[in-house]
Amino acid sequence: KLETFPLDVLVNTAAEDLPRGVDPSRKENHLSDEDFKAVFGMTRSAFANLPLWKQQNLKKEKGLF
Rank of each mutant, 00 (worst) to 15 (best):
K1H: 13
K1P: 14
K1T: 12
K1G: 13
L2F: 15
L2Q: 13
L2D: 09
E3P: 14
E3A: 11
E3Y: 06
E3C: 13
T4G: 04
T4M: 08
T4W: 11
F5V: 06
F5C: 06
F5E: 02
F5H: 07
P6I: 02
P6D: 07
P6T: 07
L7K: 05
L7W: 08
L7F: 09
L7P: 06
L7N: 04
V9T: 09
V9C: 11
V9D: 06
V9G: 04
V9R: 12
L10C: 05
L10K: 02
V11K: 10
V11L: 14
N12G: 10
N12P: 04
N12K: 08
N12M: 08
N12T: 07
N12H: 11
N12Q: 08
N12V: 07
T13Y: 07
T13K: 12
T13E: 06
T13W: 10
A14G: 09
A15T: 15
E16Y: 01
E16G: 12
E16L: 07
D17S: 10
D17A: 10
L18D: 03
L18P: 03
L18V: 06
L18W: 05
L18R: 03
P19W: 02
P19Y: 02
P19V: 04
P19A: 04
P19G: 04
P19Q: 04
P19S: 04
R20W: 10
R20Y: 10
R20K: 15
G21A: 08
G21H: 08
G21W: 07
G21N: 10
G21Y: 08
V22W: 03
V22K: 02
V22A: 04
D23W: 04
D23M: 05
D23H: 06
D23G: 03
D23Y: 04
D23R: 04
D23F: 03
P24C: 07
P24Y: 03
P24W: 02
P24S: 07
P24I: 08
P24M: 06
S25G: 11
S25W: 11
S25T: 15
S25F: 13
R26E: 07
K27S: 05
K27I: 15
E28K: 01
E28P: 03
E28M: 04
E28I: 06
E28F: 03
E28H: 03
E28D: 03
N29Q: 15
N29F: 12
N29W: 12
N29R: 13
N29T: 08
H30Y: 15
H30S: 08
H30Q: 03
H30F: 10
H30K: 02
H30G: 04
H30A: 07
L31F: 02
L31Q: 01
L31V: 02
L31E: 01
S32V: 03
S32G: 06
S32I: 03
S32T: 11
D33E: 12
E34T: 09
E34N: 10
E34V: 09
E34Q: 10
E34G: 08
E34M: 09
E34S: 11
D35C: 07
D35R: 01
D35Q: 06
D35Y: 01
D35F: 02
D35M: 06
F36G: 00
F36D: 00
F36T: 00
K37A: 12
K37V: 14
K37F: 15
K37T: 12
K37S: 13
A38I: 13
A38C: 11
A38W: 10
V39Y: 06
V39R: 01
V39M: 07
V39C: 11
V39E: 02
V39G: 00
F40P: 00
F40E: 00
F40R: 00
F40T: 01
F40S: 00
F40I: 03
G41I: 02
G41P: 00
G41Y: 04
G41A: 08
M42H: 01
M42S: 01
M42C: 07
M42R: 01
M42Q: 02
T43D: 14
T43Y: 03
T43I: 07
T43R: 03
T43K: 06
R44G: 01
R44W: 04
R44F: 05
R44S: 04
R44P: 06
R44N: 02
S45T: 15
S45Q: 12
S45F: 13
S45G: 12
S45D: 14
S45N: 14
S45I: 14
A46W: 05
A46E: 15
A46G: 07
A46F: 09
A46D: 14
F47A: 00
F47T: 10
F47K: 00
A48E: 13
A48F: 12
A48R: 11
N49L: 14
L50H: 01
L50C: 02
L50I: 05
P51R: 01
P51V: 02
P51K: 02
P51Y: 01
P51S: 06
P51I: 01
P51H: 02
P51L: 01
L52N: 09
L52K: 12
W53I: 09
K54E: 14
K54G: 06
Q55W: 00
Q55M: 02
Q56M: 13
Q56Y: 10
N57E: 15
L58Y: 04
L58M: 12
L58H: 03
L58D: 01
L58P: 00
K59H: 02
K59P: 00
K59A: 05
K60P: 00
K60G: 05
K60Y: 12
K60C: 14
E61G: 06
E61A: 11
E61T: 09
K62P: 00
K62N: 11
K62V: 12
G63W: 03
G63D: 06
L64E: 03
L64Q: 02
L64A: 04
F65G: 15
F65Q: 13
